[in-house]
Design a protein around this nucleic acid. Structure first.
Lengths: 219, 219
DNA sequence: TTGTCAACTGTCAGTGGCTGTCACTAGCCT
DNA sequence: AGGCTAGTGACAGCCACTGACAGTTGACAA
């Protein structure tokens, strides 16, 4: 038994492991920085690798592909949100739980992401994704996968079988639809702050009821 | 003035045009057939071109890329659905109009698509899209674009400004969310018939109300 | 009919994302 | 100290896609 093995959370991984972590980190930041300044398509993998002074081959050993780097911090945000949903008190109605989870997710996104990437860069990357067709496509597919997971969580909360009762998936799909619109609109807008998308989300969720009403005209 | 010019709808385009049409058609069918039998990723553009006996370069003159061919008949289906929405009587509530449009869209999908591709092949391709990550991603992005267009149509129906009132986009997003789930579930299931997805769609749309309810447990 | 023009096509060369292979270097562990 | 192996670079190769150029073939007028 070794000291490092007993050090618990503060365990210092070996030199090899630390080096790996540094390389992955450097690649990630270099990539996002390049994407943000030159655009995604205008940046080649060779450039990213060169900026970190490793071979292109090594880049592909750390990331599955160019898209993978671009969407890396998004993945963290996704699991952050998923965790928030799981922690919602069981007495809340499904849609209320989802609503609270996103809002709280946005409030605490900083702590979750900052360890890997500065939030400001994360948000700029989010905007980049919304305006880059190739990235948006993959992002949407992954969102669909996330929705499936969330649907299972909701079903469990309510003690239902996802495959037997359509409501979990429908509820999550409805919710996901609204999230997508807000993401798009936020990305197209000027204000790239976290607060901006948080408020937009809250506002749009409030309009789900009215949007489903039979008659929209009030007079 | 030429006979061909006066023949109206039955106008016979020149030989050159006919040849082009035949090539495009041959490429499309060859591609879909190959995709259906070997899978999308296992099929190279060279194979498709070779099957039609044209150069690879020519393939790219007809289609923007490999994805483009795979999603070609989908595009027709999309505009078919969009047209159906536009033709809905103005007295229907937004969500009702959307619901009717899809259902009617499925009922008449045959006439719309068959001119270019046999429906059976079209439906098989749809399933292929759902099970091929790269295609699904692009499909979802295009669906998002379609939603934007539909939101404008809905806004116009109701005499609203899309950018001022959130309801059109929210309503369409909700609807789109449900459509996506049904598409996914249908794709994962056994029955690849048009009727199957039509019924699934109708059923899931009926569950939007219940899914948004405060309490799901009835007892 | 013939000749000119423009559209369509094939060939070739090249870029960029991505993968397999293999030899070599450098942490790790005894 | 020395063997083991994870991690890396160099190289070769596949595939989607693009630009450039030259050859071919319908379209159209003289």
């Amino acid at each position: 038994m070794d000291i490092a093995d007993t050090a618990g959370a503060g365990a210092r991984p070996g030199l090899r492991e630390r080096k790996k972590q540094r390389t992955r980190d450097a690649l990630l930041r270099a990539a996002l920085e390049l994407f943000a300044t030159q655009g995604y398509e205008q940046t080649t993998v060779d450039e990213i690798a060169e900026a970190v002074d490793v071979s292109q081959r090594t880049f592909f050993r750390y990331f599955a592909g160019k898209e993978d780097v671009a969407l890396f911090s998004q993945r963290i945000a996704e699991s952050h949100f998923l965790a928030a949903v799981r922690e919602r008190p069981p007495h809340e109605a499904p849609l209320e739980a989802l609503r609270m989870a996103v809002l709280e997710g946005w409030d605490t996104i900083g702590e979750a992401v900052d360890a890997v990437v500065p939030i400001e860069l994360h948000m700029r990357t989010f905007q980049l994704i919304e305006s880059t067709p190739a990235l948006l496509a993959v992002h949407l597919r992954r969102s669909a996968e996330l929705e499936e997971e969330i649907a299972r969580v909701i079903a469990e909360r309510e003690g239902l079988d996802v495959d037997a009762d359509p409501r979990p998936r429908v509820a999550v799909a409805v919710f996901g639809g609204v999230m997508r619109v807000t993401g798009r609109l936020w990305g197209a807008g000027e204000d790239s702050s976290v607060e901006a998308i948080r408020e937009l989300t809250a506002s749009y969720l409030d309009h789900v009821g009215p949007a489903l009403a039979e008659k929209w005209r009030t007079e």
